[in-house]
């Protein structure tokens, strides 16, 4: 309450500024920023896959050129880095899923680890299918 005669505009509040480096203040903020950054590497993998499919569609020579380019050290380094971020992306988002969706069967709330187990099972199944596809 303001004293008689005073109004809230007399408060002259102090407004702290947020530093550009706010996300370095806490470990959980850093993990969050890394998780957001991982989307860039997801996008890179999509681009890489599109380039691969495009090269295959062109000709055998184009495919050979693509493979030579893909085995150059900097592309391998970039892809290894991307893989690390994609794994981070997968693990962190899987871990958040039970919080984002509540599954209820009648009055029974499905526990979070069931949802997690479903996701990892799906990941393994899809990975095995892709492995079978490329080694066919």
């Amino acid at each position: 309450m303001s004293p008689s005669g005073g109004t809230p505009t007399d408060l002259r509040p102090y407004r702290p500024r947020i530093s550009t480096w706010w996300w370095t203040r806490k470990r959980s903020y850093i993990v969050f920023v890394l998780r957001e950054l991982s989307s860039v590497f997801i996008a890179w993998f999509v681009v890489f896959l599109v380039l691969l499919v495009y090269a295959i569609g062109q000709s055998e020579a184009a495919y050979r050129t693509f493979l030579d380019w893909a085995s150059s050290p900097w592309v391998i380094a970039l892809n290894v880095l991307s893989l690390v971020f994609v794994l981070l992306h997968t693990v962190t988002w899987f871990a958040l899923t039970p919080q984002a969706m509540e599954v209820r069967i009648d009055d029974w709330k499905v526990p979070g680890f069931h949802i997690l187990a479903g996701q990892y099972t799906g990941l393994v199944v899809v990975s095995l299918f892709v492995l079978w596809l490329v080694t066919l």
Binding site: S28, F32, E36, Q99, A100
Partner: peptide, 8 residues
């Protein structure tokens, strides 16, 4: 953006 700190 689902930082999740509110819950913590």
């Amino acid at each position: 953006t689902f930082v999740g700190e509110c819950t913590k």
